[in-house]
Nucleic acid binder design. Structure first.
Lengths: 95, 95
DNA sequence: TCGGTAAATTGCGATACTGCGATATAGTCG
DNA sequence: CGACTATATCGCAGTATCGCAATTTACCGA
């Protein structure tokens, strides 16, 4: 269960929580609710450099917690609710 | 929420899971069900050195996930079910 | 094709974690 | 007290993580 490692960083945990409400981010070309939130907006709210934001999302993605959809030059991230739901289910077993 | 950091290590996560069934450990002076499991038994099952086992339990203890009761020369560790239950409750908020 | 933007990747110093042996502390029993 | 056991702490080397600037890759519009 390497998921906890991805959740261990407070900023990554916060990002995952922010993505529950994609509409709270600034407007963007694609609808945040369906396709996800643009990296730039995540970076801005997390107040980290572009490379750090990209790496944070890569870790969350490798853990399966988010998915990435690239449209044009933008990467949109959204929660993988299926994986998170199964994580919640297996939480009792592991913890 | 530094708890996830404590759960990030696979062995620590396993130990916490093992402590759900304290009776599965070898017999000891004190009843495992009520007071907890002796460090020696945890160390043996985790197959790590004494110092590593002690440090693992210190991390879990600092995170509030387990409590330690010292009786004589033995340290008995048991799950802090209250904290774990509230963790489970706040899991939905954070994740 | 060129200049600009978005994002991923690379390389780096700093810091933290890992696991262990060695040592220190604390308790037990004669 | 002295030998022994159990546990905690210290110090260390190896490894991983952190966060960034710089670079590279990818896409767009003119």
């Amino acid at each position: 269960m390497g998921v906890f490692k991805a959740l261990a960083h407070p900023t990554r945990l916060a990002i995952l929580s922010w993505l529950k409400d994609p509409e709270s981010f600034p407007p963007q070309d694609q609808p945040a609710a369906s396709v996800g939130v643009c990296l730039k907006h995540i970076q801005a709210r997390a107040d980290v450099s572009q490379s750090t934001a990209s790496q944070f999302m890569a870790v969350l993605q490798r853990a399966g917690l988010v998915t990435c959809t690239r449209i044009g030059q933008w990467s949109y991230y959204r929660r993988n609710e299926e994986v998170i739901a199964s994580l919640r289910a297996s939480f009792d077993l592991a913890v």
